[in-house]
Design a protein around this nucleic acid. Structure first.
Lengths: 343, 343
DNA sequence: TTATTTTTGGCAATCGTTTGCCAATTGACT
DNA sequence: AGTCAATTGGCAAACGATTGCCAAAAATAA
């Protein structure tokens, strides 16, 4: 930095002012300094700056340890949109995986307490916590994404799981369907609760009872979506009074389910309508093209970052808010009126 | 830190020694200090330490801007394995996206030149470079992954693209296939070059000429895998003398291709064998289950980190090496002897 | 020209560690 | 008890920026 000052013919403090907060310095000298810096290939040392100002410019994203290896590309999309939004705000993105082991929790807490990161976006329902230290009281702004944790005090950005499923179920009812199969992810999980609630709401609104829906799954995680679908097909085959419509809570489930029931000789959507959740691009190319509820991942990422920036700037700790971004039904051929012989 | 020293009843320099390089301090006092630190909830400030020692403990991974949104979960797997390996070495993982725009390049270069990161793992074939500064001369250890860039001076860890495709092609030939369709990614891309070369090598070894393979695709990126497959199906339909075996260079291509040719009334593998590249889990659940060459992503990530650690510790700048990790053919039903009426 | 505002220079403290140095203390071993 | 090695204490200088302060200089206004 001294070199830059010398080359530009100004004082070292002026260089700092020009680079750190341009605006407190004359435009002409700022240009001179920029030119000198560029000529010398100088970039200010970020760690020294951060140390001095007492705040880092790194945000960490906490991913659930067991990533989802199915067809749905949620994680890369999230990372991409969050990273982009962060850069625009002058921040960098650091990754942390939250496994079930103590080591990963310790790692995350170190990141938080060592002052390495300035804030966090979390995609898991559990906050790291090990021997006394908890992420909750690290003094870090945190926002939750995908899962609504506003009741636990974390501002959250989510999609309208419940409403979306309610609407698509209502549409299926409108098409004449009266018996449903609901393929669940891990029981009690936020998404399962919301989505199943959405199904029930639609049924009730149409004067149907909970009897008209059969649940399958519930004991495996979303990572095992394919197995869940396979199992659901087996469950389905055993049912005396077979459903005519299937609501799968992930694309993986729907895909493996369909592949199995087709093998049983059933036609989709002739015999059976199927709709699922996630909006993976591959759904457009399965046979038949699969209707799916697309998660607005990009917008959610952007919103999460906006929310985090607000928290960082906020002086007062206000209430945890909840930001809902509507999802979108991608309607395709897997979806048809109930066949006459099954009403 | 002073507080910890006071509580533990030792000098501040002893605390530093105990925390920074345990081993230069007696075991008993180390325990005393650890206890005091834990009691006070103290974690050393990472930025101050890094500033002092003049090196960061952050590694950045440079992802191609246009991530792959198909069925193949390469990126999350890479991140997970790399992150895990890094943590074990005491490093953190930072993300950078390399888009085509200047802004993202500038961002990456800032990360490099500001001393924020200590090294980089790159998954793109082009090194960021903008107004004079280039990642190549940032003095950072870099390793390339997925793409072989050892000739450009970057140590690389890759899978055996060419050999794997050669072997699977040879196997198809053994099964009686004589006419092939090769579905390509972007022409000239490392993967395309290698995989196509593998195909040709197998053909030649069996005394067949280049005539026996028809190329489709080549003008779209891997992100457009589904479209490539659809187009390939159309190309296929127009061929007078139809191939009996298809080699797709990504699972996406194979999936959409199959969905289209099935719609044309063809049976896989009865009329047509298909094999593809990537090893996405969904392939086990498509109809028919899809044979695919699995990329050993976890091992590659681990190897990339090992290589990077070596580079960081290395005093002498030795030659760029190339580490090949073999892939594995997941053989499934999409794969069968050539039908008698087509030989 | 003078008065007033804006911009810069120079100094020094600060952020929280690490680390070299040497003296002082402790511990272990004859 | 005496010797030698291992460990610790205390001090101070770094690492590379930011920032408050005030005086000096420059630009602008009157």
């Amino acid at each position: 930095m001294a070199d830059v000052a010398r080359l530009a013919g100004v004082a070292i403090s002026t260089v700092s002012r020009a680079l750190a907060n341009p605006g407190r310095v004359n435009e002409k000298t700022r240009l001179k300094i920029d030119a000198a810096a560029k000529q010398l290939g100088y970039t200010p040392n970020a760690m020294a700056r951060n140390l001095r100002v007492g705040k880092s410019n790194i945000i960490m994203i906490i991913l659930p340890g067991s990533l989802y290896y199915g067809v749905s590309q949620i994680i890369p999309q999230v990372l991409q949109s969050i990273n982009k939004a962060l850069i625009q705000n002058g921040y960098h993105l650091m990754i942390a995986n939250l496994d079930r082991d103590e080591m990963s929790e310790r790692h995350i807490l170190d990141l938080a307490f060592s002052g390495t990161v300035r804030g966090a976006i979390i995609l898991s329902s559990k906050l790291p916590e090990v021997d006394g230290r908890s992420l909750a009281n690290a003094g870090l702004p945190i926002v939750s994404m995908l899962l609504d944790m506003s009741e636990a005090g974390l501002p959250s950005v989510v999609t309208n799981d419940r409403e979306a499923v309610r609407e698509v179920t209502a549409e299926l009812i409108r098409l004449g369907h009266r018996r449903f199969l609901y393929i669940a992810g891990p029981e009690g999980n936020y998404h399962d609760v919301e989505r199943y609630a959405g199904t029930l709401e639609a049924l009730r609104a149409a004067g149907l009872t909970e009897e008209s829906v059969t649940r399958s799954g519930g004991y495996l995680g979303y990572q095992q979506g394919f197995e869940i679908g396979v199992q659901a097909a087996a469950d389905f085959a055993r049912l005396a009074d077979r459903p005519t419509a299937v609501i799968a809570t992930s694309d993986d489930m729907a895909i493996s389910f369909i592949s199995r029931v087709q093998r049983m000789g059933l036609n989709v959507p002739g015999d059976l309508s199927v709709v699922s959740f996630d909006g993976s691009p591959v759904c457009a190319f399965s046979s038949p093209p699969l209707s799916t509820i697309e998660q607005p991942v990009d917008e959610m990422g952007q919103a999460a970052v906006d929310m985090l920036m607000e928290r960082i700037d906020a002086t007062d700790r206000d209430m945890a808010t909840r930001h809902v971004i509507p999802s979108r039904l991608l309607r395709r051929e897997s979806f048809a009126p109930a066949s006459s012989n099954s009403g």
